[in-house]
């Protein structure tokens, strides 16, 4: 496993292929859109999808905590799929999350899915500032510097050998980074969607999540040479409807 390094507002940051961002200087780990209990939300609507999504997401989080041993974890919002999600956590999952939040300082940035504090230990906030960086759920339009956010669940499609590979991705330019969703059952919004693209007027880079590393491709703007362009819109086969990130 190797993380990619990137600079933002003069700070060195690492992009982990599991979808988390690590800031070594501050021993800070940022994760976004965990969407705990999306599975039971679907079940409530009649789709009895396998119930291990929260556990699987916690497994990822636990691996990241072991890998980086951070002092602070910033969850960039939509950590819980809906307002009732925290109360739907199964006993063992709730206990595990509680233990994590007691061992490490958590900052719960509030998102549109989880606008209220959930009672898990840590600071609940709309915005978290550390040094030159600001952490919020949804990117602010217009000029910012050093902004880290989630919300859009970005994904990108790359044509390869007559087929297309679609993966969740980070998107970054010199001013901001948008993190991919970590939640096990989260879908994605294509990086070419105007809602995302408008935030990177001069283009940027997408870092697609792989098994052991991230893969970097230019998006938007005008790269030095035309690369195999990221495709228009959309992604791999999905469930009949286009899977989108939640609307703001």
């Amino acid at each position: 496993m190797s993380a990619a390094t990137i600079h933002l507002a003069g700070e060195l940051l690492q992009l982990d292929p599991a979808g988390a961002l690590h800031w070594p200087a501050r021993r800070l780990l940022a994760v976004s859109d965990l969407h705990f209990e999306k599975g039971s939300a679907a079940a409530r609507q009649g789709s009895l999808v396998p119930p291990w999504d929260t556990r699987a997401t916690l497994d990822i989080l636990a691996t990241l905590l072991r890998r980086y041993r951070p002092h602070t974890v910033v969850a960039l919002g939509d950590s819980f799929h809906d307002i009732g999600a925290a109360s739907r956590l199964l006993g063992p999952d709730a206990a595990r999350l509680r233990a994590m939040a007691e061992a490490t300082a958590f900052v719960w940035v509030l998102g549109n899915h989880d606008p209220l504090p959930t009672g898990f230990r840590g600071e609940s906030t709309l915005e978290h500032r550390v040094g030159p960086l600001v952490f919020r759920h949804q990117a602010h339009p217009g000029r910012v510097m050093g902004e880290l956010s989630g919300h859009f669940h970005p994904k990108a499609s790359v044509p390869v050998r007559g087929t297309v590979v679609t993966r969740p991705c980070f998107i970054a330019d010199a001013r901001r980074i948008i993190l991919p969703a970590i939640g096990t059952y989260t879908g994605g919004l294509d990086v070419r969607d105007p809602a995302v693209r408008g935030l990177f007027p001069t283009g940027g880079r997408a870092f697609l999540l792989g098994q052991d590393r991230v893969f970097s491709f230019a998006i938007g703007g005008r790269p030095a040479m035309p690369p195999p362009a990221l495709t228009a819109l959309g992604g791999g086969p999905d469930n009949g409807g286009r899977i989108r990130g939640p609307k703001p």
């Binding site: 999306k38 939300a41 679907a42 609507q45 789709s47 791999g236 999905d238 469930n239 409807g241 899977i243």
Partner: peptide, 12 residues
């Protein structure tokens, strides 16, 4: 509503 609870079959 549908979009928010649709889970991609690959993930399942």
């Amino acid at each position: 509503n549908r979009r928010q609870v649709t889970v991609n079959s690959d993930l399942i």
